[in-house]
Amino acid sequence: MNIKPMVFSLVLLGFTAPIAFAHHSYSAFDMARMVEIVGTVGEVQYKNPHVWLFVDVQTGDKTETWAIEAGGPNILMRQGWMANTLKPGDRINVQLAPMKDETKAGGALQALRLPDGKVIGAWK
């Protein structure tokens, strides 16, 4: 067995690892804070690499749409969230880590309470 190609391959893999971790950064979110919103599902984009949930939240006489980033479908399926779990029009409660830029209505999903009361994630 020739050791040089194996060493070269391992070194090459080592250079790609930081790129993979950089993609999964939560630097845009304030992970030290938790916000709870109640709203109506407007849209669910259940696809790789991350599921996106758009929730319409009523604040006074105006509606604000929150864009919420969740994990990948494979991770969510293990927690009990399937592609048909949420439908537009469902009323839900969401706990999320908000954007650091508070001018944007969005965040990273931490937990979700479904219309039937079932909780997905770690409700705090």
Rank of each mutant, 00 (worst) to 15 (best):
V7W: 05
F8Q: 14
S9L: 02
G14W: 07
F15M: 13
T16R: 04
T16I: 01
I19E: 08
A20K: 11
F21M: 08
F21R: 15
A22Q: 13
H23F: 01
H24S: 04
Y26K: 15
S27P: 07
S27T: 10
A28S: 12
A28W: 06
F29N: 13
F29M: 07
A32W: 08
V35K: 14
E36Q: 13
V38H: 13
V38N: 15
T40S: 11
G42D: 15
E43L: 07
E43N: 09
K47D: 12
H50M: 09
H50K: 15
V51G: 11
L53W: 09
L53T: 12
D56C: 02
D56R: 15
V57D: 12
V57S: 13
T59F: 00
G60E: 15
E64L: 03
A67T: 10
E69N: 07
P73M: 05
I75S: 11
L76F: 06
M77E: 12
M77C: 00
M77P: 01
R78F: 00
R78P: 02
M82P: 03
N84K: 08
N84C: 00
K87P: 02
P88G: 01
G89H: 06
D90N: 14
N93Y: 07
A97Y: 04
M99R: 14
M99A: 05
M99D: 08
K100Q: 15
D101A: 06
T103N: 12
K104G: 00
A105I: 01
G106W: 00
L109V: 03
A111Y: 10
A111D: 14
L112G: 08
L112H: 12
P115G: 10
P115T: 02
P115Y: 06
K118Y: 05
V119Q: 14
W123G: 03
